[in-house]
Nucleic acid binder design. Sequence first.
DNA 1: ACTTCTCGGATATTAGATATCCAGGATACG
DNA 2: CGTATCCTGGATATCTAATATCCGAGAAGT
Lengths: 165, 165
Amino acid sequence: MKLSQGVEWGLHCASLLALAPAGATVRREQLAGHYALPEAYLAKHLQAMARAGLLRATPGPKGGYRLCRPPESITVLDVVEAVEGRARPFLCQEIRQRGAAAIPPEECTVPCAINTVMDDADDAWRASLRGVTIADLLTRMRPEVRKRNEALLRGERPANGSAHE
Amino acid sequence: MKLSQGVEWGLHCASLLALAPAGATVRREQLAGHYALPEAYLAKHLQAMARAGLLRATPGPKGGYRLCRPPESITVLDVVEAVEGRARPFLCQEIRQRGAAAIPPEECTVPCAINTVMDDADDAWRASLRGVTIADLLTRMRPEVRKRNEALLRGERPANGSAHE
DNA sequence: ACTTCTCGGATATTAGATATCCAGGATACG
DNA sequence: CGTATCCTGGATATCTAATATCCGAGAAGT
């Protein structure tokens, strides 16, 4: 049970894109450099988010990525599902139908109780993630950090230290 | 994000052990044969559950496994954590401290908001699993299936068909 | 003492996550 | 219209974790 690191990357990138001026695009190299991520691999996750309809990618000069929807309408679950997929973490192998205690198929009208319990827990997990939006993440970001990020997106390069606030 | 199949095995085995007569032990070969599982690999998961204090393994003739606690006091989460471990599925890499937008450590007094959100979701998942016990799983088992399992544990071998009820 | 049975370590095998590269196509700009 | 820029998608390599098996050591019953 481990979540791909792409989820972290995707959430950070989505938050960053939400800070960009409306309509502006951010190049992939810029996103990767912002967090010192491998650009080629980050591309895979950005593509997945674009396919999911969260981002729009614009090719050509002055191109790059931007959010498709306002940050208030993009949930953390949206990003997680775009990157990780929508498959359930628990896959019932129906072992109750195998072995010495095999239950004949005609008695398996009801799904396995274990499967139900695991799916319920997964629903609770997803509901929790659905309750937080990208906009919420920005709210929890410290104002000076947010300002520095916005400045970087505008192309301003902060003086070496950047810690003298 | 995928759960080990050992979780399914562990939950089925715990349920089965709960059906065994009080104080009786069930051999590993019997557990594996019950669901047509590879005995050698199942042993790994049973060991993990024994280490977690859910099962007790008795060596020697007439040995085998039994539950350490009554089924009402063993939660599904107990089994999941025994098999899968207690590590969080989301591991924050603190990429906010890296790259062009690196936040100086002295400003990182508060944990990353993304990390918090993911941990909250994990707490919700665990809380859901903690709300169901092995005894609850038995309640959701169909009576005729439960009886057949109990009979098998007593060493009775049902007639070929077993579907003529 | 001998048999029976589990434990733990060592060791393959396989699948998925991580990471990189390049040809192809779309767009802006001169 | 040609060129530089930038994303897309596929092919590929690497690495880690899950899956699976085997065997010697040790404990308990007879």
